[in-house]
Design a binder for these strands. Structure first.
Lengths: 250, 250
DNA sequence: ACGGGCATCCCGATCAATGAGACGGATGCT
DNA sequence: AGCATCCGTCTCATTGATCGGGATGCCCGT
């Protein structure tokens, strides 16, 4: 069953090892991995050794460990993410070229918005989003779109949970969030002003696949008080372009 | 030791399962995975189940299996690949905008050229390269660059092995390849005319990191008989831009 | 010279992983 | 309808791989 009372299993261990790697911690010694994953020294060494043999991890010259390119290759080669990204890239480039601000593509993953791609704006201004990074659903414009068009189940779960307040303007009240989601559905897009960081505003639109399901959010990050209409036009144009690439006949 | 007499180990099995996924085969049933990885039915089911629990694989509504976005996230978040890609993206976009042909970034991985990124040309003409795809070192322009600036050991290994002939114009003779590599080092770039597919020509330049090591190849794919000088200018401009982003002081 | 941190190797006990097989349902071919 | 496949799920006895404590030796900074 999924309710494993024991957090153990070889697979779990491997995942725990892999999860000790973060964007800021991309290389570490085997002993560090052991500590961070709560594994005994010798076990950590053995597991890391196996992963290195398999090519998922790589051993540096000075014996430090990093994520192997083979893992990236394996994951990228055939993930959903790649197909979506492929379909979206040309459109994203166009949007970025016209708006000249951060342009992003996000999907829903484990109750958070996971960013698949990001084309950086002028001097890369604010950098809260990273490729393969995450943001809460209730705070980011992308998240609001994904949530508003998500399952009823997801919405109830989010409304019942604690809504972290990233800035004074983050929507942290369930009732207010419910109203916001209704607004997003009515307008067909989300505007999040200052809810991630006070100096910027996110604008996002939903992207649907051939079955009509919303599979991603296309968004841009603007300076806080910039007008949003031009960006919205471009986003909708981009959305249509992506949907066409996904095989949606319109 | 690497001379494992038993091809087994839990890790090996997991990797074998993951490796059954290819760009053309992105979703499959658990039984198929078992067959392709040479695992007994029931074992395959169990392993797949564990991987699904861990979030590395995902189970479809009709119980078919696909690579999980979590695996992509894990791999992308902290791999070498991402840093390089990040540093290279702006330059690649510029090159692509000027040349208007496929623009690619490749690194050396297990004696092959692994493509980290690819911005597609006009109507995406010929599509032999994919993101996270591979090409042989002796045939592609990117590969020739990576090989020419690679270790002596790598060069000897390649010259000793069999050189696959993808087209009549692929360099398949060791002596000819040796001359070609010397030429690449002299010129500082590689031109591969018709060696991957007869209708196109690849042009590649090396990209170095702060230690002076060649870490990647930046390339474009042109129609077979197009002039290469404009492309070379742009590639070198792009190369300098990437190297600056990598922290190379020039 | 010394102590801390690291990687590596060893080894016996244990226990979780293993895989054959039986079962039931879905699909499709004749 | 009837039959043949192919799928997923479950059980269970056996075993061999996994586990982790501990000893050893290396490197580095103080």
């Amino acid at each position: 069953m999924a309710n494993s009372p024991t957090g153990d299993s070889v697979t779990d261990r491997l995942v725990r090892v892999l999860e000790t790697f973060t964007p800021s911690r991309t290389v570490q010694t085997a002993a560090e991995i052991g500590r961070r994953s709560g594994l005994p020294r010798s076990s950590a060494h053995r597991i890391v050794g196996e992963l290195v043999d398999a090519g998922l991890l790589e051993r540096d010259d000075d014996r430090r460990i990093r994520i192997g390119m083979r893992l990236w290759e394996l994951a990228t080669r055939s993930s959903q993410a790649l197909r979506l990204r492929q379909a979206a890239m040309p459109a994203m480039e166009r949007v970025q070229a016209r708006i000249r601000e951060h342009t992003q593509l996000a999907v829903l993953e484990q109750d958070e918005a996971l960013f698949l791609e990001r084309l950086s704006g002028p001097t890369s201004g604010s950098n809260v989003t990273r490729i393969a990074g995450r943001l809460p659903l209730h705070a980011s414009s992308s998240g609001l779109v994904l949530l508003a068009y998500g399952t009823r189940d997801l919405q109830e779960r989010m409304l019942a949970g604690r809504l972290a307040r990233l800035t004074p303007e983050t929507i942290a009240d369930p009732a207010a969030l419910r109203r916001k989601l209704a607004e997003v559905r009515t307008l067909g897009h989300a505007v999040a002003r200052g809810s991630i960081e006070l100096v910027s505003t996110g604008v996002a639109v939903p992207v649907r696949d051939e079955t009509g399901t919303v599979v991603a959010a296309l968004s841009v990050v603007l300076p806080r008080d910039a007008p949003t209409s031009a960006a919205l036009d471009e986003l909708h144009r981009g959305r249509r372009e992506i949907e066409r690439a996904l095989g949606v006949r319109s």
